[in-house]
Design a binder for these strands. Structure first.
Lengths: 325, 325
DNA sequence: GTGAAAGCGCTAACAA
DNA sequence: TTGTTAGCGCTTTCAC
């Protein structure tokens, strides 16, 4: 910038004002300076600017896993929204590992992000990590999750309700032998509650054995599916579209016809449910809306310090071909 | 840091040395300083450091699309590798849009990344954008692509060879009515060349009508598939696993049995080919290897200024259930 | 409307 | 081994 100022024969401060489009410079000198800057191929140094103004124009986003399409979509929407505000997105991918979550929290603080959108997988024991953001006065909010013990704004979709609706739909079709495949009974409690609530309304009360856990490894899903098949299920509900894919593949190996002999449902309504050879019935989370609201709310905290109310969005059934009509 | 130094009763520079683990400080004072820093919850300011040392410890990665699993996997491997060197990954997602590519090139320069890994989709007319990196002396290399007119190191997988092998495999099974679905005939020339080379070896020379273009929209793929079905194909080869999914879904709608009546092949060997109800035969790109080599090569340029030779890796056929044995 | 100068937090050369 | 100091590139207050 020094060079630009020198060549344009103005002072450093005038150059700065002009290049940042701030008032206090004649239209003519401004244009002159800008043209010189272009000529010299001037590129501002954002480290210097950040140091000076204590703002980096960066927003951090912490997600568990980028390979999963669900988070890929989130990244895309958050990025678009964040950039529309003139910010740049910094991505932290934790692999659902608490230590990594802490690592990225620190990384973001050190790099000086102006705000953070956080999809936590933090165990309750490690929850205090996030308070670092409070100490450093960095605005943040949770996306797709919340912790009752923490007074942090969040935006998420009502998982329990989605699972409740899907269960109800299956029950209404007269299906009773329903099994539920989850990742972790504790973590996935909302889905399980939704399931039991619907059952209760239909006057049935399946015991705990219908809830089965599986890791998210594709082979593991298939093995667990096999175990369920053994019990003669009429329907297998899962908590993610990719799980549903695993169940269906195994069903094919066993010659079980879908949906005639077995209904299978996913959750999230991401690409896996759409591209599968037999499109999968699932529960839609309004991902785009969640992301837009999250970014807008964060911006409000950043700009005006007002903390907007947390929001819980409605899920929606998407019935395709793995359930009967 | 000033506070840390004051509380520890040492000078700023001593604190700096200690906190950065540099020699020139007694073990004892060092530990003392570090403990004080922890107590005060000191977090270094990387803007200041970057400004001072003209290094940001950030690597930029430019990709076309994060929703696509192929790039998601790349991000994951590149991130892991980059972080093992103590760097932080900055992501630029262009949506295959030249203007966005330029935007991120500038963004990365302004933010001062120390190096860039670039998956370009740049039209040849816009190719000069990348020379900005040269002007700013920022090391960079291409991943999954190269431009003959540019003397920039690259690492990629031999697309032509992969398609050649798959075509040969199909031909060996006696299939002759083979159609090829590409995105853009120009861009996807390597695949097409591989196809024709294999055909030539088998003494056949299909005319140009067997090569059909489709956008990557899922509905578009299905429509194009329908058009091909009309011509009575024995096999449809595609250039991506997700395209193969689209073809297969449409085949199901038309009651065409796979692989008995129709062989379908994908490309890349990413998650879509694995989780599909009928697992898809495809061509594997050694993504992990590509990423590791790319990062290592970039580091070598950054550290020693030596430009390692570009590399072209071998693809591998992965035969699953959408082709006959 | 324009310029001079201070200082953001840190590192590194040099002095002690 | 430790301390003093200059300066990285930029913004912003204040004087002119």
């Amino acid at each position: 910038m020094k060079d630009v100022a020198r060549v344009a024969k103005v002072s450093l401060s005038t150059a700065s004002l002009a290049l940042n489009g701030k008032p206090g410079v004649t239209q003519k000198t401004k244009e002159h300076i800008i043209s010189i800057a272009k000529e010299l191929n001037y590129k501002p140094n954002s480290s210097a600017r950040s140091l000076r103004v204590s703002k980096t124009k960066m927003i951090g986003l912490i997600i568990p896993d980028i390979v999963n399409n669900f988070y890929g979509v989130i990244v895309e929407y958050v990025r678009k929204e964040v950039e529309s505000y003139g910010y740049f997105l910094l991505l932290g991918i934790t692999g659902s590992n608490s230590a990594n979550e802490e690592k990225y929290i620190n990384e973001f603080i050190t790099r000086g992000v102006d705000g953070v959108i956080y999809i936590p997988q933090l165990k309750h024991s490690d929850i205090r990590y996030v308070e670092q953001f409070d100490e450093c006065k960095i605005p943040y909010l949770f996306l797709t999750a919340r912790y009752e013990e923490l007074d942090v704004p969040y935006v998420l979709c009502d998982l329990k309700k989605g699972f409740y609706e899907m269960t109800k739909h299956l029950l209404e079709q007269g299906l009773t032998e329903i099994y539920v495949m989850v990742g972790d009974k504790k973590v996935d409690q909302p889905y399980i509650s939704g399931f039991y609530e619907a059952c209760r309304e239909f006057g049935i009360c399946p015991d705990e054995t219908v809830i089965v856990e599986s890791s998210f490894e594709f082979e593991a899903i298939q093995e667990v599916a096999d175990e369920i098949f053994f019990k003669g299920p009429q329907a297998i509900m899962t908590i993610s579209d990719i799980m549903a894919c695993g169940v269906m593949q195994q069903a094919r190996k066993r010659g079980i016809r879908i949906p005639e002999e077995l209904s299978v449902t996913g959750y999230d309504d991401v690409i896996y449910s759409i591209i599968n050879h037999i499109p999968i019935s699932t529960v839609m989370q309004p991902i785009k809306e969640m992301c837009v609201i999250a970014v807008n709310n964060l911006m409000n905290i950043m700009k005006y310090g007002i903390v907007p109310p947390s929001v819980i969005l409605e899920p929606k059934l998407v019935l395709r071909e793995t359930t009967r009509d």
